[in-house]
Design a binder for these strands. Sequence first.
DNA 1: GTACGATACGGACCACCGGTCCGTTTCAAT
DNA 2: ATTGAAACGGACCGGTGGTCCGTATCGTAC
Lengths: 200, 200
Amino acid sequence: MTERRPRKDAARNRAAVLAAADTLFTECESPEDVTMADIATAAGVGKGTLFRAFGDRTGLIRALYATRLEPVRNAVEEGPEPLGPDTPPLQRVPALLDALLCFKLDNRHLALALEATGSDSPYQAEHYERWHSLLRSALEQIPGLTNSDFTAHALLATVRADLVEHLAGRKGVPREDIRKQLASFIAEVLGGTGPDEAPR
Amino acid sequence: MTERRPRKDAARNRAAVLAAADTLFTECESPEDVTMADIATAAGVGKGTLFRAFGDRTGLIRALYATRLEPVRNAVEEGPEPLGPDTPPLQRVPALLDALLCFKLDNRHLALALEATGSDSPYQAEHYERWHSLLRSALEQIPGLTNSDFTAHALLATVRADLVEHLAGRKGVPREDIRKQLASFIAEVLGGTGPDEAPR
DNA sequence: GTACGATACGGACCACCGGTCCGTTTCAAT
DNA sequence: ATTGAAACGGACCGGTGGTCCGTATCGTAC
């Protein structure tokens, strides 16, 4: 198989860039006053290296984002009960959204940077498709719920990075409050058509 | 009062720029390949004029957006039954969101341009505050609904420009379908706590 | 109609950013 | 030790938002 292993220095530099970018985005207020040159300098490499490794700005941010999101993704794909695939939908849907919310709360800067890539609306990222179809199929298994496709979009819109940032950052709403409000909203949505509780 | 009337040529140029920007944004695919220089040229004025009149790119787009949104705003503030302030909340909430949705459908390019301004998340625009508090107070009057503040945010997130664009543009969902799905979603949200409203 | 101050015009100009290019250095397989 | 491939880095480029200032236009006072 032609699986060329990357050279040692390449791997090291890649990691250095990722780390530097992460701290820079975390520190700076707005993602867009972190320039590519800044990142290169902070990582101690040249700009060329940076672009060679990640293609372009979006590629770098996506790589960072994917790295951070991986634990969540694993938990969802093969994890235990609250998030894993064996959870009954009525319980899994809130769990999924709560996990996503917490992730965005913990990585506000990153999620913001990803969405702010300009031309790259979140709906073009392959991430989105995955989450959407996951959520949709979970919703479809809930009896009495129609409109799963749109509902999935709507629920995902609820945890978008800039809304989360607006609430948690700008308005200072405490983390647990946001989680509770989201949970309560979801309960309203899910409870609307079926029997009000009882996962049957 | 020091209400200096603007000079005649200034007013004419301002209008020309607004018109030119509107058509350019409408024609071009992505808002960000309409440059300020393009707009100036299309309007037959110099760049300086353009910046003098609107401050910066965001200012121009906001001005355009506000102009287009004005009819809706009027209808909401002092209009007749479906949207106006005398409508009972249970009917007004869906009407408001439907109006907003239709507006975004009709002005996709503009709404997209506004949100894509980069640093300027929709939540920082003064528009948003107005719509949010309007919606929230309407929701508060619906008996049995808690969590009005967050619910208002969530419902507004449902009609965000890029989601609408994703559905209507990218995936080609017909206008009426989207409206119907939105209405149905809202019904689920509003019907969740009260008596079984089931409009069908 | 003329003169004149205030206001607006316009396009050359600037700073800066994402992205490329290519001569030089480093790696690792032999 | 040799050597070719892979990676490096920073000078460089095209283009964008935004500024500056000499010039043209407006509108008012006479």
